[in-house]
Design a protein around this nucleic acid. Sequence first.
RNA 1: GAGCCAGUAGCUCAGUCGGUAGAGCAUCGGACUUUUAAUCCGGUGGUCGAGGGUUCGAGUCCCUCCUGGCUCACCA
Length: 492
Amino acid sequence: MEDPSPLIRQRIEKYEQLKREFNLVHFPNTFRKDTDIETFIALYGTRDAEELAGVKTVHRLAGRIMASRKFGKASFIHFQDSTGRLQAFFEMAKVGERPYELFKKLDIGDIIGLWGAPFKTKTGELSVYVEGFELVTKSYRPLPEKWHGLRDVETRYRQRYVDLIVSPEVRRTFVTRSRIISAIRAYMDERGFLEVETPMMQAIPGGATAKPFRTHHNALDMDLYMRIAPELYLKRLLVGGFEKVYEINRNFRNEGISTRHNPEFTMMEFYHAYADHEDLMRFTEDMISHVAREVLGTTVITYQGQEIDLGAPWARMTLKEAACAVGGVAPEVLEDRAKALSFCSKAGIEVSGGESLGDLQLAIFEKTAEDKLVGPVFITSYPREVSPLSRPNGNDPSVVDRFELYIAGREIANAFSELNDPVDQRSRFEEQVRRKEGPGEVDEDYIRALEYGMPPAAGEGIGIDRLVMLLTDSPSIRDVILFPLLRKGDLP
RNA sequence: GAGCCAGUAGCUCAGUCGGUAGAGCAUCGGACUUUUAAUCCGGUGGUCGAGGGUUCGAGUCCCUCCUGGCUCACCA
C-alpha cells in the first residue's frame, strides 16, 4: 500500500521508537517456546490455586495478544497460539520497571514470547505469572473489533488470515476439514489403496462434462486444460496393474460459482478392481459413517438445523423411484419421451428438444426430487445416455450400474461399475462428440489402454468440500475453502 | 449470465422528511496492582464503494459502473 493509513504509520513509527528506547532487535527470530497453550492448560487446568502455588516450573509460551486489561503496575492479557488461548499476568514488581513500561506499549495483535509459572487468579482462571517476555513480532495493522469480530464476508474471504486470527469457529472448521481428509486417507490406506497423483494439466479434458479452464505450455507450444476429473488417468492405472488406487486433489471446472460450487474444488476419486457399484455402496456408507465417528465422535449430525444420521446402512432408491416417490412425478411421465418433454415445459425445465428420454428422466429427477433427499440415500439406475463411462446393467441395458449419494439434498458422491469394453467405450465417446458433450474428441489413448484389458472395477468420486460442509454444518462451500475464488480486487 | 439486497472511521454499526457526518471498540495522552467487552478523564481519525446528474443544498433522490451476498441458470 503506497499511502498507509495514519493508524499504520503510527504503529510503524511506534515500533521504531520502541526499538530505540528499549534496544530491541528488529523483527527478531530468536524466541523459542517449549510449551503450547493447549499443553499448559492440560497440565494445570484442573489443579486448584493452592496446588499451583507450589508449581515453580517456568514455561515458555508464545502467541498473539488478543485482549489486554492494563493498570498502572499490573496487567492482564489474553494471548493465543495455534492450540488455544490463555491469560497472562504482568506485574511491574515481577518483570521489572523498564520491561513493564515496554509491555504497556504493546498493542493488541502483537506477537509476544513470554515465560513464567502457572497460577490461578482470584476468579479462578488459569494464567501465566509472567517473569519475562519479548516482543516477537510487531503488528502494524489493528485487528477487527474484539466483541463483534469480523462480520464482512468479503473481507473474511479476501483476508482469511484475519478471519482465522479473530474467529475461533473458522479455525475449528479448517482443523476439522484437515481431520476429515486425514481420516479418509487412513481409511483408504488401511484397506490397501494406493494414493497416486495424476495430471492436473491434460491435453484432453475427460472424465466429466464440465467446461474446462484452458492454459498453454510455452516450450511445447501446446494448449492444455486444467483437469475436470482424474478419472481416465486413474483407470489407466487399473490397466497398469494397480488394483486399488485413490487420489485426493483439486479439480477445476469453468462453471458458475455458488454456495455449492467453487471453480477449484477437492475431489477424492478411487477405483477398486474386482468390485462393482454394489460393493461401493457398502464401502461408502461404512467409510463416511466411520469418518464421522472418528472426527465428530458420532454419526448423528445436525446440518442447518436438520438432524441427519449417517450410521450405516443407508437407504437405496432408483432414480425413477425417487422422482415418483419423492418428486411426486407420475410414473408414466418417465416412460414416454413426449410425456416427459411436456412435463418439463410445465415444470419450467429448460429443454432444447434434442434430449433423449434418459436426459429428461435425469432432468426431471434433479428438478423434482434432488433437494428433497435428506438421506443419506443412494440413488441408483441412472440412464445410460447420461453415463458414458459406466457399465450397462446386465438385466436392463437402458440403465447403468451407477449410483449417486445424496445427503441434505446435495450430491456428495457419484460412482459406478466401470465400462471396460473398449469397443462400447469408443462408441460412447463418439456419441458424446456427436452430441457436442464432453471434450469434443475421442481420447484415443484411453481406448488403447482399455484394449490392453482393464479388470472389471468400480470407481467413485466424493466431493470433499461438500462432505466437509456437511460435517462442519457450513452453509457455503466458501466456508470450507480457505481462499475461495473471488474477482481480482483489493480492499481499500 | 439474470433477479433481489448491501457497501458510511482500522472494526461493528447508527444516520429521521434532502439542510454543519455520529456512537462503541481500536488507537493516542493521562489516572489506576486481580482484570474478563476493565473503569474514569481528554484527544486523533471520513474521497459516505467510484463516476455522473437533479437541487440553493445530496450519505440520503436519479443514472452508469465496481465489489460482495443470496436466489436462479450452467455445474459437482
